[in-house]
Design a protein around this nucleic acid. Structure first.
Length: 507
DNA sequence: GGGCCCGCAGGG
DNA sequence: CCCTGCGGGCCC
């Protein structure tokens, strides 16, 4: 059995610490090995620099190196062909690049294939999948993929073999692997789905060429927003999202609890502030980085972003009026600065808000203060403001409006209930009546505060809903719990409503 | 400080 | 696929 030196430099075979002249570093994985304990140590001194350890030479046997095997005999031709393209003065740089790519992607492998265009596209997809979904050990498509914290993927078996050899660094980038992951590697289920899809696309010959998505898996995203090569100008305006830190589903309603915050294990607290909308997105409070409403018209709205400085938005802290999407222009964006139809229906995001109103779903609220710095916001940035509910929806002069009220007074750990005029108050109280709604139509209303009542006999929560002169009862089992047995007036979210709408019983 | 343009993300 | 979106940087 051949074993390397451990982290302290002690040979795992002879249990001695070899002097540096007896230590060999693998050219691939840089792991130190005790030369005298090797079965076949390198003979010449010059070989020691190019020496590959038993593990690595086993993993990458030279004969199966993907590049060498496929192209070794015609690589001379390939270079000649590339030179020919380079020298062709009739081609633009773009055309040259395209030709080169065709050549490398194998479209030109079969001489002058006529369906090259279609084949190329398919190959592009498969190339990307090959590259991204390949295990660095066995060079095959990942089997039961395990992802390291540094973002590299390996087959479960390959990973376990590596760990079994006493390795505790990533085979790809040498970053330390935490003991927990080494001992209990978890299969990356999202990746499993991606692999399944890749296999499907590989096996299906028919069908149009798949589109190449520049998809970056969450684990592989940086901790901060970043700008791609394609987005020429720097800055966050065109930035891609960084890693999402919380583990809640994108359609998750309500607060983000500690158990979904593996990063800090504290959940997203009311009053938390991020530099911008992209950072806010990373903590799951509000996912769209431009749009103001996160939601699905058939499911409900998860969150809204309230940006200060719009005069028509009445903002009273614990309740505010919100104009639905499409009802205003995005400042400085000509495309949306069009005339509004005067007969809008509730659709898309507005319908999502209306549905949340009907069902009494909690809506997360984030506020930003780009223009107006109100006394509410001594700080800059985007602020998570806790859970609200949509109390009323209406349509007036073709514009949809929403009245959004604090759902429950959520006690937060880092400061007393913010955005309330009464700082002491973390109790529900009557809500102000909205003015000037005489000409409004389509009023969807939801009454009652707090919205959910606890029913001890069934240990469930019920809520009375009034809608279009009809009343019905919503039942949601075990949705809320009291913060403490002593203080029943202080409500707190413990468990968010079910992620699937099926689980919500309407009796 | 306003106009302009940009490109990402997500819904439908 | 197409469209839109209570961002945001930069230029004037």
């Amino acid at each position: 059995m051949e074993l390397p030196c451990d982290g302290a430099g002690i040979c795992m075979v002879c249990k001695n610490k070899p002097p540096s002249e007896e230590t060999l570093a693998c050219k691939t994985c840089v792991t130190p090995w005790h030369a005298t304990c090797l079965v076949s140590p390198p003979q010449a001194l010059s070989d020691t620099l190019q020496w590959e350890c038993p593990d690595c030479s086993m993993i990458h046997p030279p004969s199966t190196s993907a590049f060498a095997s496929g192209r070794s005999e015609d690589s001379g031709d390939l270079i000649a062909s590339i030179r020919k393209i380079e020298d062709d003065k009739s081609l633009t740089e773009q055309e040259k690049a395209k030709k080169r790519q065709e050549l490398l992607s194998g479209a030109a492998a079969g001489p002058s294939s006529l369906d090259g265009e279609e084949k190329k596209e398919k190959n592009d997809v498969l190339d990307i999948l090959d590259k991204e979904l390949t295990c660095s050990f066995c060079m095959q498509m990942l089997d039961r993929p395990v992802t390291t914290p540094c973002g590299h993927n390996f087959c479960l078996k390959c990973f376990q073999r590596w760990i079994g050899q006493g390795k505790r660094t990533c085979a790809y980038c040498r970053v330390q692997i935490p003991p927990k992951i080494a001992s209990q590697p978890r299969i990356n289920s999202t990746l499993v789905i991606a692999i399944r899809m890749a296999r499907m696309s590989r096996s299906s010959n028919a069908g149009g060429a798949a589109k190449v998505y520049h998809f970056v898996h969450n684990q592989n995203r940086p901790d901060k927003a970043y700008t791609t090569e394609r987005a020429k100008k720097a800055g966050k305006a065109n930035a891609c999202s960084g890693k999402i830190f919380v583990t809640v589903a994108p359609d998750h309603f309500g607060p983000i609890p500690a158990e979904n915050d593996p990063e800090r294990n504290m959940g997203v607290l009311v009053g938390e502030i991020w530099e911008d909308r992209l950072a806010c997105r990373q903590w799951g409070a509000h996912l769209p980085h431009v749009a103001g409403i996160a939601g699905q018209s058939t499911y409900g709205a998860q969150s809204v972003a309230l940006s200060g400085g719009y005069i028509d938005d009445e903002d009273h802290g614990e309740w505010f009026l919100y104009t639905g999407s499409g009802g205003r222009d995005l400042s400085g964006n000509k495309r949306t600065n069009k005339d509004q139809s005067f007969d809008q229906k509730f659709d898309k995001m507005n319908e999502a808000l209306r549905l949340s109103c009907l069902k009494g779903y909690p809506v997360r609220v984030v506020r930003s203060h780009k223009e107006k710095r109100s006394s509410y916001a001594p700080e800059t940035g985007v602020r998570y403001d806790g859970v609200y509910r949509i109390e009323k929806c209406w349509r007036k002069n073709g514009i949809q409006g929403f009245k959004v009220c604090r759902y429950l007074f959520v006690r937060c750990d880092n400061e007393p209930a913010p955005w309330t005029s009464d700082v002491q108050g973390d109790r529900p109280r009557p809500l102000p009546v909205i003015k000037e709604l005489k000409n409004a139509i389509d009023i969807t209303e939801r009454k009652g505060s707090p919205s959910w009542d606890y029913e001890a006999s069934s240990n469930s929560f019920t809520s009375m809903v009034h809608c279009s002169n009809e009343s019905f009862i919503l039942k949601c089992p075990k949705m809320l719990t009291f913060a403490s047995q002593d203080d029943k007036s202080c409500w707190m979210w413990k468990k968010p409503p079910p992620a699937s709408k099926k689980e919500l019983l309407i009796v």
